[in-house]
Design a protein around this nucleic acid. Structure first.
Length: 177
DNA sequence: GCCAACGTTGGC
DNA sequence: GCCAACGTTGGC
């Protein structure tokens, strides 16, 4: 005979680790791109772009569930000389399926994704400005109010990171001269 | 479910 | 080019 077995759901409440505080979006982001693959020049020329190719769940989740139209974005050149925030953008449409995952010819192809059940998502982001002066990672490191940025945390490799409004505005002002 | 191996990121 | 810090994978 079959018993209706009630399995104990593994909830956050009874797991060992304390639940992380729910993430609350500030509406401000930093997005990394290697200029060799997509630079601020490309972004300015295109006017808008689909931020595809993200294959990290945390970064994906930001684009799926946290980003909202109108959110502001710092455009950061990674693996560049020097690494720096070089411009800004604005989220037009978050949470779009990343079609590069379905394209067998793409380097971002993922056989686990399908049209019916896409597992990777992207955001459409519009170019908004170029900083007059790039704000380098050294510049950022030198400023006390920016010391908490994820960008500076050792081992922090997330390609999409939330930033505070104050951090966003400070970097903009640093780049304005 | 553990954990070692492996791949990736990205500043230096 | 190096390598530390992660995330992911896969054998058990």
């Amino acid at each position: 005979m079959t018993k209706k077995k009630k399995s104990t759901p593994k909830t956050r409440a009874n797991s060992k680790k304390p639940a992380p505080p729910p993430f609350v979006s500030t509406g401000f982001w930093l997005m990394k791109s290697e200029p060799e693959s997509y630079s601020i020049d490309d972004f300015a020329r295109d006017g808008q772009t689909l931020w595809t190719g993200v294959r990290n769940y945390q970064a994906r989740n930001f684009m799926m569930t946290s980003m909202k139209p109108g959110d502001r974005v710092l455009f950061y050149h990674s693996s560049a000389e020097p690494p720096a925030v070089v411009g800004t953008g604005e989220v037009l449409r978050p949470n779009l399926p990343d079609l590069t995952a379905l394209d067998a010819a793409s380097k971002y192809f993922d056989a686990k994704s399908s049209t019916d059940h896409p597992i990777w998502f992207c955001a459409e982001v519009a170019f908004r400005s170029r900083l007059q002066t790039p704000v380098t990672i050294q510049d950022i490191r030198a400023i006390k109010p920016l010391a908490k940025m994820a960008l500076l945390a050792p081992g922090q490799r997330l390609s999409i990171q939330p930033v505070s409004e104050a951090e966003f505005n400070l970097i903009l002002s640093m780049g304005a001269k």
